[in-house]
Amino acid sequence: MENSEEARGESWSMWRPKAAAYARAFGVFSAEERFEIADEAIARAYAARARFDATRDFSPWFFAIVRRLCLDALKKKRELPLLPERLAAEPTRQLSAEGEAMAREEKDFVRRFVLALPRADRELTSLVYSQELSISEAALVLARPEGTIKWRLAMIRKALRKAWERAYG
């Protein structure tokens, strides 16, 4: 993040929805809470920018901040049970052509599958498939060995394939 208002504004518009999308994977935060977390994460990243090692990728560092904030917020919520129906109740807008093209049935299927995943797996899938983090970057954010991350992703894909076969096989 550069030290200028313009750069800060650009960072804000770029990273805010990314942080909110990751916070969404926790399954318990309302839209308002997600954007509060996102704003706080950007502010913290900006305040701590002097400590950021510019030779490294920004994403894992930033998402680690978002994750800490999400976990803190979870604690404040006293670890309420996950409420996937809360997310399900929030209609996902159909915006992109790609999104429009995706069959409604497929979308509902994937949505149900993702919401049924344990929180840690939702986090992982969000980081890898939404934020496009590599295995090693996701491992950094989640503080897990790369091997574990790779194995979990393989298990998630396998579970999705099995669920698909059960539904449509």
């Binding site: 518009s13 909110a20 999308a21 954007f35 999104g99």
Partner: peptide
């Protein structure tokens, strides 16, 4: 399938982000 799902989720958050600007200067600022 997962990428498409999460891409759409991200688009959702992106639109919401534009529609819901920060209410106040974040606490850490």
């Amino acid at each position: 399938l997962l990428r498409a799902y999460f891409k759409e989720e991200y688009e959702h958050e992106r639109v919401m982000s534009r529609e819901t600007p920060p209410k106040a200067w974040p606490a850490s600022l």
